[in-house]
């Protein structure tokens, strides 16, 4: 069953220097209990997609297309309607646990904010739920730490608090924007294991935004690869990693250093991502692509293929000799 469906989502920003097309014609769906990954480098528009779902885009943003949740288009909702969904139905885990917590508020107040808003819980009943949530994310000695401030916790513990905050009202969908990027690998492993476990218990869906292909491989059923605000390829994770069809996906996979057998040079992708104020007329990846033809420079490739594995490329990997 589809929980969230984005169709032809485009986001652009009006800036003094011109219009930046951050996201172009992105479509995807997330089923109940499913984990979908949005992979891309910085500037590929992956965070903006998550922000648009909850109506959190900056004031100069213009959106088009639809993001449907329970039959309603989230992009056209009024603030008060969105407020009834935020944190209750769809919650967000932000990237930086250092800045996404309020330094002036105790952990308890930050955690029970959404309970008070959505369920009207206060006092002992709210405290009980807060303690349960803190136990769920394994914050030791939760009882004595309710009155602590964010700076009294380590980075890993703060990210757990941010996750506990997102889980407070048992949402159906979590948008996790680089939830482990700021953390060490050992803590990352703890947090990803924790998310997986919570997801299994509560049949929650997750949209995982990351640039780390290792994290994707371990956690997601479906993966969308974004480049310059466009979907380059989307497929089941296993399929995508085994038979990448888009040269960009293949390049990304090759650029990841392998810890097991790493000798010789890494295979990099030459060049820089394009300027999104003046996007190239053809495929956005064409200037960096080894296989480009004249057509790639001229015409934008459509997203084609069967629904389980789609790619936007004129010369996909499997058609090369």
């Amino acid at each position: 069953m589809t929980l969230l469906q984005a169709e032809n989502l485009s986001i652009e920003f009006q800036t003094p220097d011109g219009v930046v097309k951050a996201v172009n014609d992105v479509s995807f769906s997330i089923g109940a209990g499913e984990t979908v990954a949005l992979v891309g480098e910085s500037g590929s528009g992956k965070s903006q997609i998550a922000l648009s779902v909850l109506g959190l885009l900056a004031g100069n943003a213009r959106t088009s297309g639809t993001v449907t949740y329970q039959g309603k288009n989230l992009l056209e909702m009024q603030q008060n309607e969105l407020n009834s969904i935020r944190a209750k139905e769809i919650a967000m885990i932000f990237q930086d646990p250092m800045t996404s917590l309020n330094p002036y508020m105790t952990i308890e107040r930050q955690l029970n904010e959404s309970l008070e808003q959505h369920e009207g819980l206060k006092g002992a009943a709210a405290r009980k739920r807060v303690l349960e949530a803190m136990d769920a994310v394994r914050i030791p000695d939760a009882k004595n730490r309710l009155k602590a401030y964010p700076h009294e916790f380590s980075g890993g513990m703060r990210q757990r608090i941010v996750i506990a905050m997102a889980l407070m009202c048992s949402p159906k969908l979590i948008l996790a924007d680089e939830p482990t990027t700021a953390l060490d690998v050992t803590v990352q492993a703890q947090i990803m294991a924790l998310l997986k476990e919570i997801q299994r218990e509560s049949d929650m869906s997750v949209l995982l935004i990351t640039h780390d292909l290792g994290v994707v491989a371990g956690a997601c059923e479906k993966t969308l690869v974004l480049y310059a605000g466009r979907v380059m390829e989307q497929a089941g994770t296993l399929d995508l990693f085994e038979t990448p069809s888009h040269p960009y996906t293949r390049g990304l996979l090759r650029a990841v250093p392998n810890i097991q057998d790493a000798v010789g040079d890494l295979r990099s992708i030459a060049g820089q991502p394009p300027n999104q104020m003046v996007p190239p007329p053809g495929c956005p990846f064409a200037p960096r692509c080894e296989n480009r033809t004249e057509q790639c420079d001229r015409e934008l490739p459509p997203l084609v293929g069967d629904i389980r594995h789609q790619r936007a490329c004129w010369r996909p990997v499997e058609e090369l000799v």
């Binding site: 492993a189 990803m192 491989a217 996979l253 810890i259």
Partner: peptide, 14 residues
């Protein structure tokens, strides 16, 4: 053991 591997067939047990 905690390093994620970019291969969905490999199960990482941190």
């Amino acid at each position: 053991s905690a390093v994620p591997v970019a291969d969905p067939r490999v199960e990482v047990v941190p």
